[in-house]
Design a binder for these strands. Structure first.
Length: 609
RNA sequence: GGCCCCGUCGUCUAGCGGCUAGGACGCAACCCUUUCAAGGUUGAGGUGCGGGUUCGAUUCCCGCCGGGGUCACCA
């Protein structure tokens, strides 16, 4: 971003304007993050850069306060804060947001009188008019056009003319006749200047007279956006490329609008100051790895597929039985299976019941799966943007934090091509982020995560403390690509010493029956442990060294010694190195496990091999 | 279908007329190794096609093809 795009005297304002109809989508997170990065970068350059959030809740049916709160919360979790917008108090007690520029409120539903004032002004200037067709009529017309393979465009009524106030229509509207308000699209072509895509031209007549106020009295997105961006001083509109096609509408609106002396009163009249056209930057879209659009419906698809497989495989299951079991409406579930609906609630209920993994689409999903915010923001910032910098070895720099992003972000380096969301690479980033954590930081992250998402695991983890806990973190951290991985990786340590379940296949493989090599190894190992000083004062490496020397002296393969011990200690053939395992379990815990294994496995038959 | 955007390894990308087209994830092989991870080394893998412009095109122009977005009283 160069200085030519900005005016040093005015604040430079970007905004993220989510509609609160669900969780924060990863695509939305990226948009918000890059808007934030731009504003931050401006600050670093000495400008008054500001990142603003506005909640676009003009869809009365779908919006909810919980969604708005959830989106704000996800943003804060990612480490993205806003200068202007709804306030949020973080778990740490900090307050984000506020209205220091005095341009709020930041919920559009609370700005209706403003929209109405500008709407009325536009109508009086002959730039907008009430229209009385019903949705049904319009839909029928659209269908008819489609049947004739024609593109439908709303035909401007013959009594409507640009610049002429239509008193008859206004009177009908005033008398209470249901209507929408449409904008009189000017007869000129429109060129959108985009900081990413360059000049994009739209010919005259391409855009029809679109609706700016719905029948319910709420403004449409197009209208509210233009009014708010002007009144809130937004200078840089950065959004996803799917909005590019909307931009000529916004530009046309900006061309027709001037500021009112009083924003809430049409009769105050215009002060003659035209609306600004902000700088636009349309960012590339984000897709699934298969090229389909990333959408919440992917969850329904995944659940449906798994459920169908289940039903064909297990004939004792029926859809109706499942429905009553899950307290779902049988008809709705049947529709769901038949792909007649994509209910997220049903998908989640079914997934929870049958342990079906649902694709992660929203930031919330990734939180739940045990991703670190740092890994997500790092990965996301590489989708459609790159710093274009090399490290000392001449390799591309691609591991960085939000601070680096804000330092190096520029719109110039935004790409034009859509990016596919590669979950495998994200996972790799997350594994690296976890690996980079100090052991005690890992402990904190894991504990916080577990408290929120896996209370049972959190409860079990609580019983381990002190040196044993430190050993557990040290041993398991490199084996976790997500925090959730710890649930499995740490399982061996969280089971009571007298309740270890010895996996029969592992036992057989380890030759643990009396007289076999494994049994002997474990017995000797036990004897060695009893000679060790008090718990916690031994070096894990000394345990490993003993195993090695024992194997050498007895001319055994390491696997013949270590695996039986591993099974005896953990019940399975997979665990961290045995020195670490003993550190975690402690001497007495280890002895309990070894004894129990020795006695329960001695009578087992050898493997049938 | 109309309009609009896009086109470098499988994926994310570097490149802004001259490079053996670089990196990362993934993949393969090898090394390390008591299991599982991790780590190390090496390797395979790309400029969609056709025309121009130019001494020279990944890069500039045109066409084609391919992909995508959008065509709501959703945002």
């Amino acid at each position: 971003m160069t200085a030519q795009h900005v005016n040093a005297a005015q604040p430079i304002v970007t905004r993220f304007a989510p509609s609160p109809t669900g969780h924060l989508h990863v695509g939305g997170a990226r948009t918000a993050m890059l808007c934030w990065a731009f504003a931050q970068n401006m600050k670093r350059q000495g400008f008054d850069g500001r990142f603003m959030i506005r909640i676009e809740d003009t869809d009365q049916a779908r919006s909810s306060d919980e969604s708005a709160k959830g989106i704000l919360d996800d943003l804060a979790w990612l480490g993205i804060t806003w200068d202007d917008g709804p306030t949020l108090t973080t778990p740490a007690g900090a307050t984000i947001g506020g209205d220091s520029r005095n341009v709020g409120p930041y919920f559009q539903a609370r700005r209706i009188d403003i929209y109405n004032a500008y709407l009325e002004h536009l109508v009086r200037c002959g730039r907008a008019y009430p229209a009385f067709e019903t949705s049904d009529q319009l839909n029928a017309d659209r269908k008819a056009a489609e049947a004739k393979k024609q593109t439908y465009k709303y035909p401007r009524p013959s009594d409507v003319q640009l610049g002429i106030f239509n008193e008859q229509r206004w009177a009908r509207a005033k008398s209470g006749e249901p209507h929408v308000i449409r904008f009189v699209m000017p007869p000129t072509g429109i060129t959108v200047t985009d900081l990413v895509l360059g000049e994009v031209k739209f010919a005259a007549g391409e855009v029809d007279d679109f609706v700016i106020r719905k029948q319910d009295g709420f403004p449409t997105y197009h209208f509210a956006v233009v009014i708010d961006d002007e009144l809130m001083g937004v200078t840089h509109v950065m959004r996803a490329q799917e909005h590019l096609i909307n931009t000529p509408k916004h530009v046309a609106l900006q061309g027709a609008l001037t500021r009112l002396k009083n924003d809430r009163d049409a009769t105050s009249g215009s002060n003659g100051q035209p609306f600004r056209v902000p700088q636009y930057a349309h960012m590339p879209l984000i897709f699934n790895i298969d090229g389909t659009k990333m959408s919440k419906r992917d969850k329904a698809k995944a659940a449906r597929k798994a459920l169908k497989d289940l039903l064909t495989k297990d004939k004792t299951l029926t859809a109706d039985a499942i429905a009553s079991d899950l307290k779902l409406d049988a008809k709705l579930l049947a529709d769901f299976i038949a792909a007649e609906n994509d209910s997220l609630d049903i998908a989640q209920a079914v997934a929870a019941k049958f342990n079906i993994p649902l694709p992660e689409i929203e930031v919330w999903d990734y939180r739940k799966s045990g991703y670190l915010p740092h890994a997500i923001t790092n990965f996301l910032s590489l989708l459609g943007w790159s710093p274009g910098l090399k490290d000392e070895q001449g390799k591309d720099i691609e591991k960085f934090d939000l601070s680096f992003l804000s330092q190096h972000f520029s719109i110039d380096r935004l790409g034009k091509t859509a990016a596919k969301f590669d979950r495998v690479k994200l996972l790799s980033f997350n594994a690296d982020a976890i690996a980079a954590l100090a052991d005690d930081a890992f402990d904190r992250e894991l504990t916080n995560w577990a408290n929120q998402w896996e209370p049972t695991f959190a409860q079990r983890l609580k019983h381990i403390d002190g040196q044993r806990r430190a050993a557990l973190m040290r041993a398991c951290k490199p084996r976790c690509k997500t925090l959730r991985d710890a649930v499995k990786v740490m399982d061996f340590a969280l089971t009571r010493d007298d309740q270890v379940a010895f996996d029969p296949a592992a036992v057989a493989k380890a030759n643990l029956f009396a007289g076999a090599t494994g049994h002997t190894s474990v017995t000797k190992f036990r004897a060695m442990l009893t000679e060790l000083p008090a718990a916690g004062t031994f070096e894990p490496t000394s345990i490993d060294a003993w195993i090695k020397s024992y194997a050498e002296t007895n001319q055994l393969k390491m696997g013949d010694v270590a695996q039986p011990i591993r099974v005896a200690l953990t019940g399975t053939t997979v665990s961290p190195p045995l020195g670490d395992v003993v550190s975690v379990l402690g001497i007495s815990g280890s002895l309990t496990r070894l004894d129990r294994c020795l006695s329960t496995c001695r009578t087992l038959a050898p493997a049938s091999a």
